[in-house]
Design a protein around this nucleic acid. Structure first.
Lengths: 144, 144
DNA sequence: TTACTAACGGATAATTATTATCTACCAAGG
DNA sequence: CCTTGGTAGATAATAATTATCCGTTAGTAA
């Protein structure tokens, strides 16, 4: 948990103006451990900031993400992606174009199962991020 | 890759009617290895099945998923979820209510990096699926 | 084959999540 | 303070997905 001065320092370092809304969104998110969605943050925040707009929450989360102050729980580019292969396997997702490739590697099929009180683990998969061959070369691609 | 008779057998076993559309969607998906979205499947399929509806593709993918014939690339319940914690960590997602809990376990922080020709891996995270304490007991919960 | 019926498919409206647009306003530096 | 570029709020627009409605079809039995 960062102090307000540390937060201010982060914004200064990145040359991003620190507004009341950004501070509020960040502190609300940092004070929670349930990985809220933009909507969920908005619901909490508007009690103390009735004039806050949901769009601001979205924009602020994007800004904080660009600054490297918050992370998104990894997921494929906004669309559900399907696979007819039901065997245990893993995925590598290109952060640039969203391309997904299968990863078959038995070394990944059994990992240390952490102790999560009350949580019954039924499976796992490893999600690699990176850049595919095409996006690695020619940056700025958006085609899958 | 399943034969048509095997596919027919699967549907019979689950007592789910096998329609032309379902067969077409399944075979198209099984014939691809790029994890297409519903939209992408629709684009391919409508060349051979001009009357096919996008809604049918969505419904069919849901049906196939319920039957255990196709898998979805794991992701958090349709909404982006955020986290102020920037340290390396992993996640466990409740398949019933979507609750996400952090997993800190240094044993997961370094995994075997598979050889993916051309793909530059910049990071990874392990995604556990299961049922949280609440959903493990009282089934049928939808509240996070 | 034919007939029956529950379930399905297609068209489209509705919903949900997110992003873009536009104007007034505020944060940071002089 | 005062200027100015970036920002916040309101709202429209877009994208992804799901629901609804009704004619049609798959599966079964006669």
């Amino acid at each position: 948990m960062k102090t307000r001065e540390e937060i201010r320092g982060f914004f200064k370092a990145k040359q991003v103006p620190l507004t009341h809304q950004r501070l509020a969104v960040y502190e609300e998110l940092a004070g929670r451990k349930d990985h809220p969605s933009a909507e969920a943050l908005y619901e909490s925040l508007k009690q103390n900031y009735p004039s806050l707009s949901l769009a601001t929450v979205y924009k602020t989360l994007q800004t904080l993400h660009d600054m490297g102050m918050v992370s998104r729980v990894p997921s494929p580019i906004s669309q559900a992606r399907y696979d007819a292969c039901m065997a245990v396997h893993h995925h590598a997702v290109c952060v640039s174009c969203g391309k997904i490739v299968d990863v078959f590697d038995p070394r990944l099929d059994s990992v240390a199962v952490p102790s999560l009180p009350g949580f019954k683990v039924s499976g796992h998969s490893v999600h690699f991020q990176g850049r595919c061959a095409r996006c690695g070369k020619a940056d700025r691609s958006k085609t899958n």
